[in-house]
Design a protein around this nucleic acid. Structure first.
Lengths: 192, 192
DNA sequence: GTCTATAATTCGATAGAC
DNA sequence: GTCTATCGAATTATAGAC
């Protein structure tokens, strides 16, 4: 059995609350109530509500970017690389759905320069994936298509997976979820 | 040139503001400032902030449900029906991206019973589409697959389109957007 | 329809004692 | 680390005059 510190519990419960209600709709009083202590105690763990969101989002963005760069600079083929990226997203979603929920829904609540920085990093991430798709088309692994649109569609397909993970009563099998998603993206739904 | 009343302008600008910043993050002061009048004037057009959101979301949900029911009870084949549903979503998104943005991102801000009602209607909508996919598999138009997952994926693919419409500088061609989406969903990205 | 003024509440955050 | 107490700002909404 895993020992969990009060600090870990704080971040876990806060993440769930924000994921369920939204960042703006989650008040410090909500968090304190969930933790069974007073509002002032929250500031033992974080410096501000905004800083909490920033830390979550940029930690994830940096982690994902780092992982993608390792894939890109490897010697796999373009489509193999693309599948590794998708696999990473699915497996991460299966393990940390609330983090993904935050990432998908709450980045808009970043302030000024941080918002801009976030959007630029995310854009850069997507462009790297689009490049993989372009290369896949060039070497004949993928069919001809609008790469910007397709990149957009692949991210759209992955983006909402966290909802399924959070909502499904019976535990989802991440391996099967990945297989279904790969088939959907690469083969489509039409019968050959 | 279209004549636009102040009331129409109010709903248009308010929709854009909420879409950009989020429902909770958009204050009555923001709206009044955009409209170049005082906060009190807002209540000439709506009875409350919550009612504004409710009206938008349920109007759309009812409209979509009604349209889907007409498709379902028609004599088209399951896959033809499915394509009509997808087409409807794409074309609606092309014309009213801010409405879709609201629909996708802000339903969580509904209160108590309204939230439950919304979720049930949306669930019912998705189940009707899943039934089309099941029938498509049965009659051999679609390959065998997990229908719940696939339904989820199709909606995920469509859900984020509004972002492309809003962000793209050069006007998007809705017909081409629909073609790319249909190819993505039905054929996948792999080269045959 | 538009304004001024303000009510009533809720918000994030801090001071300071224990 | 936890509490009480509270601040100052922001929020939705209303009253009532013009």
């Amino acid at each position: 059995m895993k020992i969990i510190t009060k600090k870990e519990k704080f971040f876990e419960e806060t993440l769930k609350l924000i994921s369920e209600r939204g960042f703006k709709a989650t008040t410090m009083r909500d968090i304190a109530e969930r933790m069974n202590f007073e509002v002032a105690n929250i500031y033992n763990y974080i410096e501000s509500k905004d800083a909490l969101l920033e830390n979550y989002l940029f930690d994830m963005l940096i982690e994902f970017t780092s992982y993608l760069d390792n894939i890109v600079t490897s010697s796999y083929s373009p489509v193999e690389k693309l599948k590794l990226v998708i696999s990473r997203h699915v497996q991460y979603t299966a393990i940390k759905p609330y983090e993904i929920s935050l990432f998908v829904n709450e980045w808009r609540n970043l302030n000024g320069p941080k918002l801009k920085e976030f959007e630029e990093m995310r854009m850069s991430y997507m462009q790297k994936v689009e490049k993989l798709i372009m290369e896949g088309i060039e070497n004949g692994e993928l069919r001809h298509m609008n790469t910007e649109f397709t990149t957009f569609m692949i991210f759209s397909s992955m983006r909402w997976l966290f909802n399924m993970v959070i909502n499904e009563k019976e535990k989802i099998n991440p391996i099967e979820m990945e297989k279904q998603l790969m088939d959907f993206i690469f083969k489509g739904i039409e019968r050959k």
